[in-house]
Design a protein around this nucleic acid. Structure first.
Length: 542
RNA sequence: GGGCCUGUAGCUCAGCUAGGUAGAGCAUCUGACUUUUAAUCAGGUGGUCGGGGGUUCGAAUCCCUCCAGGCCCGCCA
């Protein structure tokens, strides 16, 4: 049976939680969901982000992990909520390289009170979190967005802040005991914001009398903060468990940094019990996402793969699947090279397996991962599948989506395609296009030249080959198999041989010596365009 | 220094909770087809399960130990 309850507070190994199996091939999200559902009828799952800077791929893993558990619990018939806390009241820690010089003066201020770097958003926090919220939305994460600075404005933290002043010595003792760091008698669990300069400062403890505490800011201002208002904030190690109390959090995914022994979960757990008097949430620590082959790809771009890059180049359903197919305890190497196509292919394969019910025991977990990746919105029947690999070729042959669909229509039957199918294909086209532009290796890139590429040199025999090719193509059915058959036969008979025949064709169309397989490639193009090109080359002087 | 995660086929990973003859996909090779290139189908090759001990009739699986990689212990997931 399930033993999660008895093991859930093992501090020595938080990752143990997700290794627990109820039976062979049960997905980790189901194991956790079942445990949550057994303990509560209205479980709340919390997750969040601190949008102090550019968002990375790992933040997406957190959101997807939370959503997958939410949907798994929902699948068990429970009324479950997923909240997404945006830490908009966090201070700007330093002026990052990507910020202009003048932002130096904002260091130490809450990010919801710092102007937007681009001027298009409400403030600094909005600027950095907005693209991420868009991503979360496109990933199908069903969460309620909550801004931490609003919680402070509403006085939600007041009770906890009061307790931290009452029990400050206990807190210092706990932090010392759990984290092993030397006790700091001046530790402040609460930092007021200076009403004059707008930066966080330290409180004068002995002036505290609910709801006010005084402070002497380094800017010279002496002021008074109201803990019922957004006049200051709890420090992270106290704020986190305070959020658990405010929302009654039942489970929360978080990065392994918080999971380290003596880290903020360890101290938070004890503070939750001994200071705030609540039970800590079920911890779901997850490993970090790394980037494969980081060194090389940076140089060409001058930057690394951010969460935005990941969402732009990976179709959302595939990205969901990528994070669900492995245990949270496993580090993921995000492969922004060819591996991205392999991953998309694997996703499609699991989709087929799900609908055909034909898969091995080893694949069962991945098929369930596919299902969970739909967040309880699994299609009724197998959608029209067009591989990203094929779309790579299509998007390089036409610029607009309408034209791309015309191209695609030459090799894929789109007559029964639904709106939903087109939406998915559109998303995939967008991702593939972005990927080609930013990360794809050169060998799969090409562009069909509007005229014969400059520098093309043809011998007499090459032209002879093209002439016989054209005469065969003129009245043939324009289909992949027919085309490749003609090329093979004509090339073999020709003095230049089949190998060179391929080279000549690629050269004339894309100016390279290799390219996509010719059958589908040529079939994707207009027949007359191809024939004209070959004809023109056969009769030219080059 | 303390702690966590990981190490299974060339690559990405299942399998370990409750020990019972090593599994998938991709890649590669070969063949459907008189079409070798980045689309499709079938089949094959491929691993002393990081090393070494121990428990056991039997260990990828449990225990001990060592090695390697990654990461955390300052509010970057």
């Amino acid at each position: 049976m399930f033993s999660l309850i008895s093991t859930r507070h093992r501090t020595e190994n938080l990752f143990y939680n997700t290794r627990v199996r109820a039976s062979i091939s049960m997905h980790w999200a189901d194991v956790i969901a079942k445990d949550l559902a057994e303990r509560s009828d209205h479980p709340l799952i919390a997750t969040g982000i601190s949008p102090t800077g550019i968002i990375h791929v790992g933040s997406l893993r957190e959101a997807i992990t939370g959503e997958s558990i939410r949907s798994a619990v929902e699948g068990l018939g429970k009324d479950v909520r997923l909240i997404y806390l945006i830490d908009s009241f966090d201070p700007l820690r330093k002026r990052y390289d990507f910020l202009p010089e003048e932002y130096e003066k904002y260091v130490g201020m809450p990010i919801c009170r710092i102007p937007c770097p681009c001027g298009k958003h409400e403030n600094y926090a909005h600027h950095f979190v907005q693209p991420f919220l868009d991503a979360v939305d496109s990933l199908g994460v069903h969460c309620e967005i909550i801004w931490t600075h609003e919680l402070y404005e509403q006085g939600k933290f007041a009770e906890c802040i009061d307790q931290t002043f009452q029990k400050r010595q206990e807190i210092i003792e706990i932090l010392h005991r759990i984290s092993g760091k030397p006790a700091d008698p001046n530790y402040a669990p609460y930092d007021p914001v200076c009403a004059k300069c707008g930066r966080y400062t330290k409180p004068l403890f002995d002036t505290y009398k609910f709801p006010y505490v005084e402070y002497q800011c380094s800017c010279g201002y002496h002021g008074k903060a109201d803990v019922r208002k957004a006049d200051g904030k709890l420090t992270w190690r106290l704020e986190w468990p305070a959020k658990w109390k405010i929302f009654g959090t039942a489970a929360e995914p978080f990065g392994k940094d918080h999971a380290a022994a003596g880290g903020s979960y360890d101290t938070g757990k004890v503070i939750a019990k001994e200071i705030y008097g609540i039970e800590p949430p079920f911890p779901i620590p997850y490993e970090f996402v790394q980037l494969k082959g980081v060194g090389q790809m940076h140089k060409s771009l001058g930057c690394s793969v951010t969460g935005l890059d990941a969402i732009r180049m990976t179709p959302p359903e595939v990205l969901n699947y990528l994070f669900l197919r492995v245990l949270p305890s496993r580090a993921i190497d995000y492969d922004s090279g060819l591996g991205i196509l392999d991953m998309a292919d694997e996703y499609d394969r699991m989709e087929r397996a799900y609908f055909s019910h034909e898969y091995t025991d080893a694949e069962a977990n991945s098929v369930r991962a596919y299902e969970i990746a739909q967040h309880n919105h699994v299609p009724k029947e197998l959608p029209l599948q067009v591989s990203c690999r094929h779309l790579c070729n299509v998007v390089q042959m036409a610029d607009t989506f309408d034209e791309q669909m015309k191209v695609l229509g030459r090799t894929v039957d789109l007559t029964d395609a639904t709106d939903r199918d087109f939406k998915r294909i559109k998303r995939r086209c967008d991702c593939v296009t972005y990927w080609l532009k930013a990360f794809a290796p050169d060998k799969i890139k090409f562009s069909v030249s509007p005229t014969i590429p400059g520098g093309t040199k043809l011998m007499m025999n090459d032209k002879g080959f093209l002439q016989s090719l054209v005469s065969r193509m003129n009245d043939c059915v324009w289909e992949p198999e027919v085309i490749s058959g003609i090329i093979a036969e004509t090339g073999k008979i020709s003095p230049i041989g089949l190998k060179n025949a391929y080279k000549v064709i690629y050269q004339l169309l894309i100016g390279k010596t290799a390219g996509p397989r010719l059958g589908t490639f040529l079939a994707s193009m207009d027949k007359q365009f191809v024939i004209n090109r070959f004809n023109q080359a056969a009769h030219s002087d080059m």
